[in-house]
Design a binder for these strands. Structure first.
Lengths: 279, 279
DNA sequence: TGCAGCGATACCCGAGCGGTATCGATCGGC
DNA sequence: GCCGATCGATACCGCTCGGGTATCGCTGCA
């Protein structure tokens, strides 16, 4: 099996249309048909059911689509990492969601920078749910993730710490003076529908709450009395004057982990992880 | 970057000798040289330093070797899984070390078999340290592993249970009547050096103890008063008459996890994992 | 029934892969 | 210190195979 064949197959499997896929690949349709047929013959298996009106995936095709996507991103990752390793002063790219655990991040960067032979650490601020792709495609070397929100499937991780969550409310809201609340108290406020975050695909779930991309937006909307949110304690530190953070007793605890791609052989990654776990 | 190029590069990087690598690949040396040069040009990076007497890896080459190996095994895995998915009655391959948690395994297989629409489960009995490769190369779909002995880097896992460890001793040994011991008690017995297990590469660490491959061998040697070992409780259940199991207080607890390759989209895997976590 | 849409097939050309022959550099032995 | 052995690079050649155009055959729809 060759990368070219996989790239072609993934394109067809995603488009379910040979013509569209060929266009996307920048080639003509006939060689595409031929390559897919050849791939099927090599594997000894039908991957696509085709009539002249419709293309569908077989069981085997579904499996190969998932595997193929993973392989293709592994290949682009390998290219990027190889090129980065060739730089004279290779740097380490750390992916973090903007607004992630302020103090932890500062400490980590300071502690690592104090190590002898520490590499330069570049911060790659990203949106939620981008981490995986950044690590898998070699654009980042390490990331800070938050369980249970982010998936760590296929990544190596070390747990850094666990914290509770707080509800962020307008300072003037009746609940803001409480010393603690429960999920039910804040999720059922009709005047303050919960903010909605983009899902893995970048789309927003259905609901009445505001569509949010980052903490600044969010805090502004909360201050305006338009929404509310439950977030990890550390993200609710150093709030604006007009906001209040109230611990939510029964919110699931949030674990911050440091994650890196498996088989990473970069010494700098190992060092950074060691420093992080000894903070 | 193409698979062919990667396969060639990995061969050269492992042999550090173009002639040997070409032989291993079944081609002549000149096209190999040319392909490597072309790969280096594509990536814009030297991968190998070569004099006419010696070949060494550059930084970039070291990274690409690790990435390349992972990609190559992902490709063979994809081929195998695709072919397996095409079978009329796809079965599920579960990799377990021979001797692994007897009762748990029985319960798991029974419970899963009772599920409606359960696939056939084939057991693949393997040596310690083989699991990773079996999963990564697509020869197995799921595995039972033991932390902290097995590495789960790059795998998805769910914890099943945690147990203590016991020392296995000849029934006639003075320590055998104790209700509990400490690691120091059993690791320092000059007459019973600890058994040695093969490491990841299949080689044995240095030491005076016997070289062991499986539990039957091991128990026989212990019964003969030649060695001793500390193993998880469940592996020490149902011992021969002439052996005794004594709990080791300060041995690290052993966690049994069920592991599968990330991105596995097999419904049967998801089902088996669900059953396993609800036992 | 005729037409439009779509994948498969036929056929041609050129890039590129693999082979043989050979060169040039380096190290070891006498 | 020179010669030969070793090993990677280069030159050149033939053929496979990847990509292109033209066209066919099937299917759903008006």
């Amino acid at each position: 099996m060759e990368i070219r064949e996989l790239r072609y197959f993934v394109a067809v499997a995603e488009e379910l249309h040979f013509g569209k896929a060929a266009e996307r690949l920048g080639i003509a349709q006939p060689p595409l048909s031929r390559t897919i047929t050849q791939l099927e013959r090599r594997l000894g298996t039908a991957l696509l059911e085709r009539t002249s009106r419709k293309v569908t995936l077989t069981e085997a095709g579904t499996v190969l689509l998932a595997e193929g996507r993973a392989i293709l991103s592994a290949v682009t990752a390998a290219e990027r990492r190889t090129q980065r390793a060739a730089k004279a002063h290779p740097s380490l790219v750390l992916a973090v969601k903007s607004g992630t655990g302020g103090e932890l991040l500062t400490k980590l960067l300071d502690a690592y920078a104090a190590e002898p032979g520490a590499a330069t650490v570049d911060l790659l601020l990203c949106e939620a749910h981008q981490h995986r792709q950044l690590l898998q495609e070699g654009q980042a070397d390490v990331a800070l993730l938050h369980l249970p929100f982010d998936s760590v499937a296929g990544l190596d991780t070390e747990t850094l710490y666990t914290e509770g969550q707080v509800a962020i409310l307008p300072a003037s809201h009746p609940l803001a003076i409480r010393s603690q609340v429960r999920m039910a108290d804040v999720t059922t406020l009709p005047e303050l529908p919960m903010a909605r975050w983009p899902g893995p695909g970048g789309g927003y779930p259905e609901g009445p709450g505001a569509e949010i991309r980052n903490l600044t937006q969010l805090f502004q909307l909360i201050a305006l009395g338009r929404t509310t949110v439950v977030i990890p304690e550390s993200a609710g530190a150093d709030l604006r004057r007009d906001l209040a953070a109230v611990p939510v007793l029964d919110a699931p605890p949030v674990t911050t982990v440091i994650a890196w791609p498996p088989h990473s052989r970069l010494r700098a990654v190992a060092e950074l992880v060691r420093v992080a776990t000894h903070l």
